[in-house]
């Protein structure tokens, strides 16, 4: 089974991925609508895994839906809710159903979400999950037992290029690459000069980098992220730019900013591609792509 996403990563093209969020409940209309909008426009669709530790329809179910609808799913898997048995089992299941891309994440704390009294599992971490995939591919499980039928995945992980302090994150990044990550999605970046520095470093490693772009929906939202989201720093000039938009039109400014950034990343050939996150406003991704003059 060939991963179309992997093919795209290895081609010379500028890769674009995005993401959809499974619903709180069983009503799949909205996620189906988002998948429909994105599936022919992007090279891969991430399905988030109980993002911000909020219990939802599973990412595995969302990934199957993408597959059934003819899209290319990138299954997000966190280590927060499953131990090593459950994670391996879900990887076997995903592979058996044609899902061939996985993004390995440690996962937010349980305390970020809506089941604050639950037990966070963290039996493994993101780098160990990447290594687990590579082991399963060799036909062995983590216990060293033979598998009757192995897996094959395009496996990736994440990095936060604007973290403070940065070096501990870079050490973890190197461990993820050594463990076998083929691609790295970054946390949202807003300062392209900083990102250039990061890429000068990252280019030493055999890994494809997709720059994370989060749609800014208002000045207030940008300030909120600066205050509350680790590793996200929206510069003041962008906040000011969002503030200049007429009332109710900040989102258009946000689309313009995201489009402009993507265009620069592409023109300057800073990295393999971008991962567009329009949290809660997934229907706007095609507009962001138009603003970026993509496909």
């Amino acid at each position: 089974m060939v991963s179309l996403f992997k093919k795209a990563l290895e081609s010379k093209k500028f890769v674009v991925t995005s993401e959809v969020a499974p619903p709180k409940g069983t009503n799949l209309e909205k996620i189906k609508h988002h998948i429909e909008l994105l599936k022919n426009k992007v090279d891969g669709i991430n399905i988030t895994d109980h993002q911000s530790s909020v219990m939802r329809y599973p990412s595995l179910g969302g990934a199957l839906l993408v597959k059934e609808m003819g899209g290319e799913p990138i299954l997000q898997m966190t280590c927060r809710d499953r131990n090593r048995l459950a994670l391996q089992a879900d990887l076997l299941f995903a592979y058996s159903r044609g899902i061939s891309n996985v993004l390995c994440l440690t996962g937010d704390s349980i305390l970020m979400g809506d089941h604050k009294e639950a037990k966070g599992v963290f039996d493994m971490d993101s780098s160990q999950l990447v290594a687990t995939i590579r082991k399963l591919e060799k036909g062995k499980d983590l216990g060293g037992n033979d598998l009757d039928g192995a897996v094959s995945f395009c496996a990736g992980a994440i990095v936060t290029p604007e973290a403070n302090p940065l070096e501990p994150q870079l050490i973890k990044f190197e461990k993820k690459v050594e463990a076998g990550a083929e691609f790295i999605q970054t946390q949202a970046i807003y300062d392209l000069d900083l990102f250039k520095h990061f890429m000068e470093y990252a280019e030493q490693f055999p890994v494809k980098v997709l720059a994370g772009v989060i749609l800014l929906t208002s000045a207030q939202m940008a300030r909120f992220m600066n205050k509350n989201v680790a590793g996200v720093n929206v510069p003041q000039n962008l906040i000011d730019e969002l503030s200049t938009a007429p009332k109710g039109r900040a989102i258009e400014k946000g689309i313009e900013i995201a489009g402009r950034m993507i265009k620069k990343i592409r023109k300057q050939k800073l990295c393999t591609g971008v991962h567009i996150m329009a949290i809660g406003r997934e229907e706007l991704v095609p507009e962001i792509m138009s603003a970026a003059e993509l496909g």
Partner: peptide, 16 residues
Amino acid sequence: CHKGLVNGPCGGTKNG
């Protein structure tokens, strides 16, 4: 470490 991680920090760390 809140998550008991043994391979380095998670992405949630902020200014130490």
